[in-house]
């Protein structure tokens, strides 16, 4: 318990000097670690620590029926739980709008990047695989979008694919890795006053007046989400896209290192 609460004045004064509360530059991430396969009962799992933010993503793959409008494709279902153990700001109970936003933004990036070929999740008529991504926030200290995306993507890349044999799902034994293509990561920026910061921590987030998440692969922007009351100029958005393409190289190499493959 070494929580630092920063006063508004102090943080603004600091940021004007080009420095963060923890001495980072405005466009730097905190230390990131990714641990893959920590929960072996799940088909895939990954724990991400981004500073004091701790997120666990678990993948389950189940037999199910296809959606009516996509009979030849499997499904992807992404949920996020802001666990009450993660912060005294989070309440137990039904999913909050915040947790739904986190899940949907992460889902969009992964879906749009084509990381999972839902066509390959088709088994036979009326039977497809549903891939569940559950993002568990264990300790909150800001930037759940980027930490959640990294955890989800790393967990997916390490997931084993169950087999459907003789009318039964086989989850153990000699299984192949789930097929993934491409890789999506995200960069989230917070605006405090007129300054823009990458990877805001919990106390910075409480002073953030606008937030922008950009999810991308090496070539394309794949999803965006602007949040909180304030605004960004077009020039700012353009600059942040540039920063995202630059920063995402490091993120992708972190994921590759943790989950293997290329």
């Amino acid at each position: 318990m070494h929580i630092v609460t920063i006063t508004d004045e102090y943080i603004k004064e600091r940021i004007r000097g080009g420095m963060r509360n923890d001495k980072r530059g405005l466009m730097s991430y905190r230390d990131i670690t990714i641990g893959v396969g920590t929960m072996p009962n799940a088909e895939g799992s990954a724990e991400v620590n981004m500073g004091n933010t701790k997120v666990l993503a678990g993948i389950k793959i189940d037999l199910s029926e296809p959606m009516r409008d996509t009979p030849g494709e499997g499904n992807l279902v992404t949920s996020a739980e802001l666990l009450p153990m993660a912060s005294d700001k989070f309440d137990a109970g039904p999913p909050s709008p915040e947790s739904i936003e986190v899940a949907r933004v992460i889902d969009r990036g992964i879906r749009a990047s084509g990381m999972i070929d839902t066509g390959s999740l088709f088994i036979e008529e009326g039977k497809v695989w549903t891939v569940y991504i559950d993002i568990y926030v264990l300790n909150y200290d800001g930037n759940l979008f980027d930490a959640g995306t990294l955890a989800s993507v790393s967990a997916l890349r390490s997931a084993r694919m169950p087999k459907y044999e003789n009318g039964a799902v086989v989850r153990e034994g000699n299984l192949q890795r789930m097929k993934t293509a491409n890789m999506c990561t995200s960069c989230t920026f917070g605006k405090i006053g007129s300054e823009i910061l990458l990877d805001t921590d919990g106390s910075e987030e409480s002073f953030t007046n606008a937030r922008l998440t950009i999810a991308n692969d090496s070539e394309y922007v794949r999803a965006m989400q602007k949040g909180i009351g304030g605004s960004f100029t077009l020039a700012e958005i353009d600059k942040l896209m540039e920063a995202t393409f630059e920063k995402s190289k490091d993120l992708r190499s972190l994921v590759t290192k943790a989950s293997g493959g290329d």
Binding site: M1, V4, I6, E9, Y10
Partner: peptide
């Protein structure tokens, strides 16, 4: 005024 609060 100003400054920073640390919680221990």
């Amino acid at each position: 005024h100003g400054g920073k609060i640390l919680r221990i």
